[in-house]
Nucleic acid binder design. Sequence first.
DNA 1: TTAATTGCAAACCATTTGCATGAAG
DNA 2: CTTCATGCAAATGGTTTGCAATTAA
Lengths: 145, 145
Amino acid sequence: MTQARRAPEPATARQRSTRQLDATLQALVASTEHPTAEQVFREVRRQVPAISRGTVYRNLGKLIAARRVRLVHVHDRCARYDARLDPHDHFLCTRCTMLLDVESRPRGLRRSRARVRGHRIEGHTLTYFGVCRDCEEPGVTMVER
Amino acid sequence: MTQARRAPEPATARQRSTRQLDATLQALVASTEHPTAEQVFREVRRQVPAISRGTVYRNLGKLIAARRVRLVHVHDRCARYDARLDPHDHFLCTRCTMLLDVESRPRGLRRSRARVRGHRIEGHTLTYFGVCRDCEEPGVTMVER
DNA sequence: TTAATTGCAAACCATTTGCATGAAG
DNA sequence: CTTCATGCAAATGGTTTGCAATTAA
């Protein structure tokens, strides 16, 4: 038989640890602002000045594939990243794009539907939207006259 | 006093009816697929062959501003449009990007929160995601070999 | 040593915009 | 007529990608 002995091929490609990747994850873990790729880039650049945008995008992609980070769906123009992985919802200010974590309701959606019309549900995202306090009251936290 | 008499200025700029605009809304009302701008363009072009993509984008923007159409937030690459205006949720297949309407649960979120941390909630979007039936069972609805 | 990772720059692609022409009211 | 809408083409801007040089393991 030709049962060739070949190197064991790990299902997960071995991921290398690099200063760039570590700093990228670090920046996300440290933030609660749901930064954009550009914001992550600016932050990471403080640790690794020579890093390029392309590397940040590639690393964000790896972190997402590895489920170390999530993408928050907010059809603005650019993606927002979140290192918080436990179930929670969001509030988006449609004026200034501030994105806030919101604890999900205790009952409600949790442990509810498993399928819709035969399609298996793997998860869901719930985003509230409106105009945040600061945008709502112009002047209160701004110049007054 | 200088209370100049000037032409009454309607709050809403008068919107003209054009074949292009009508066809664009028509395409959305007729569809339940949550088409992308490109798909709307291709459809509308069947009625108005000379229409340009730019016009479709501008008209989609007007329809959204006029609240005749909604944008479905699905951080894929491109926006999806929906002419269905009553409250409902969605299911997104993360494999083929099929987007399905889902009736929102009778109780649950409706009439619930009005504010989160002081920010007034104006609405919310709930999107379930997973892999749809067709993508889940490869081959069943495809060629069988 | 050898394969993954990086920086750079060019490529992509959805969407937006400036402008001269055309159509609606 | 006056103003808004259109078509075209060029410009934007976030994100992706090809490639040669680096670097982790």
